[in-house]
Amino acid sequence: MSNFLPYGRQIIGDDDIAAVVDVLRSDYLTTGPAVERFEADVCAYTGATHAVAVANGTAALHAAMHALGIGRGDEVIVTPMTFAASANCILYQGGTPVFADVDSHTLLLDPAAVEAAITPRTKAIIAVDYAGQPCDWDALRGIADKHKLALVADGCHALGGAYKGRKVGTLADITVFSFHPVKHITTGEGGMVVADDANLARAMRAFRGHGITTTASQREKSGAWFYEMTDLGYNYRITDFQCALGSSQLKKLDQWIEKRNALAQSYDAALAGTAIRPLTKHAHVLHAYHLYVVRTPDRDNTFKRLREAGIGANVHYIPVHLHPYYQNLGYKKGSCPVAEAAYTEILTLPLWPGMVTEDVTRVVAEL
């Protein structure tokens, strides 16, 4: 369908292509200087001290769980209103995801539900900045400090967002980003973990390269061949040409966040007074608007009719604990009633920086 309007899409410019081509013509295609440059660029943008670029956002989550030492018998509290990877990373390490319910207005992790879910086995909290709106990080930090828990921000929706003037990337012990094509900037596939703790960063950097403490390019530069594997890691490396694309895209992030907010404001105004209700946005945040999510009383029919009209509406998400895999693990329907009720109503409308106001008008007219 030629006039199909997707819910999200990458924007690639000639400058991005040139940046990638430059690396393709260079000496290093992986573990080279473009990776370090992208890490430094993300640190400079977010204010984080250390960054580790990896193959995708899921690898970033896995690296975070590894660095925190999550293992068998450990519990990690996580939201059900997210992509499955936010919880799967706990299972990868042998830990147990514990789902805490969300706030009904924002669908962000509810701090009161987090507090109620803590047991002597709890080791960490993973909070997701759902749709691009930062969580209640003051409350979550208070809970984490009180119970001596690690605090992880799944910021895969929220690069470029801010909470009370502080950039996403500086609000938790570890923050995870994704650079999938529908995200704010893209490397094709790709992810990054940022942290202020040098030991956590060191552990995650080794984890992405089989648990080996040096890379091939580092050994070549030093004239050494010797290396040792000190931990069980994975091949979660990202290429230099992907990172060159990421650095190029990052230069445009602020203008794209501004455009996403303008489009969201157009939706808000057009939907005011109708039965279609946008999620609540707090005044103290800079919303990154990865997704524009509304609640509608007839979600499935609305989805069907929008798709028939060439509008790429979507649903984010089936609560993780309702997936068959998690049901087979013993997770029960009814354990997160707010998220489960929201799931029957939520609909994601198209929103990405390449859209124009007329696209919003078209979507609203079909609604």
Score class of each variant (00 low, 15 high):
162 A>S: 13
173 D>N: 03
156 C>R: 11
143 I>V: 13
172 A>W: 00
135 C>D: 14
143 I>H: 11
152 V>I: 12
162 A>N: 15
137 W>R: 05
138 D>S: 14
177 F>H: 05
142 G>A: 15
178 S>A: 15
184 H>P: 14
145 D>I: 11
137 W>N: 09
142 G>H: 14
187 T>S: 10
154 D>Q: 08
184 H>K: 11
176 V>E: 00
151 L>N: 14
151 L>W: 10
143 I>N: 11
190 G>F: 02
175 T>Q: 15
173 D>Q: 00
139 A>Q: 05
153 A>S: 10
170 T>A: 03
157 H>Q: 12
141 R>S: 15
183 K>A: 09
182 V>Y: 09
161 G>L: 03
189 E>G: 12
180 H>T: 06
188 G>P: 04
155 G>V: 02
162 A>I: 11
182 V>G: 12
137 W>K: 07
167 K>S: 15
156 C>T: 15
135 C>E: 06
153 A>M: 03
156 C>L: 04
190 G>E: 01
155 G>R: 07
141 R>H: 09
154 D>T: 06
186 T>H: 06
162 A>W: 13
144 A>F: 08
160 G>C: 08
147 H>G: 10
187 T>I: 01
147 H>T: 06
164 K>A: 13
165 G>I: 01
182 V>K: 02
152 V>C: 07
155 G>C: 07
149 L>P: 02
188 G>N: 00
181 P>V: 12
169 G>C: 03
173 D>G: 02
177 F>E: 01
177 F>L: 03
179 F>Q: 06
145 D>E: 13
145 D>P: 14
139 A>S: 14
181 P>G: 13
136 D>I: 00
167 K>T: 14
140 L>Y: 02
152 V>D: 12
179 F>D: 13
189 E>M: 13
185 I>L: 09
171 L>H: 08
137 W>D: 01
141 R>A: 12
139 A>C: 05
187 T>V: 00
165 G>Y: 00
135 C>R: 00
173 D>A: 05
187 T>P: 07
164 K>I: 01
165 G>D: 04
178 S>M: 07
159 L>E: 10
190 G>S: 07
143 I>Q: 12
149 L>I: 03
169 G>V: 13
153 A>L: 00
164 K>W: 06
143 I>L: 09
136 D>Q: 03
156 C>K: 14
161 G>V: 04
154 D>Y: 11
183 K>Q: 14
162 A>P: 15
159 L>D: 01
157 H>M: 03
152 V>E: 14
149 L>W: 12
181 P>C: 15
174 I>Y: 10
138 D>Y: 08
159 L>S: 04
154 D>G: 06
148 K>P: 05
153 A>D: 11
138 D>I: 11
181 P>I: 10
186 T>R: 04
186 T>K: 07
144 A>T: 10
158 A>H: 06
171 L>Y: 14
167 K>C: 14
170 T>W: 07
172 A>V: 04
183 K>W: 08
190 G>R: 04
138 D>K: 13
186 T>N: 06
164 K>Q: 09
144 A>W: 09
141 R>C: 10
164 K>P: 05
167 K>A: 14
137 W>S: 01
168 V>D: 09
142 G>V: 04
160 G>K: 07
183 K>M: 15
143 I>F: 03
161 G>E: 08
148 K>L: 15
177 F>R: 00
180 H>I: 10
172 A>Y: 06
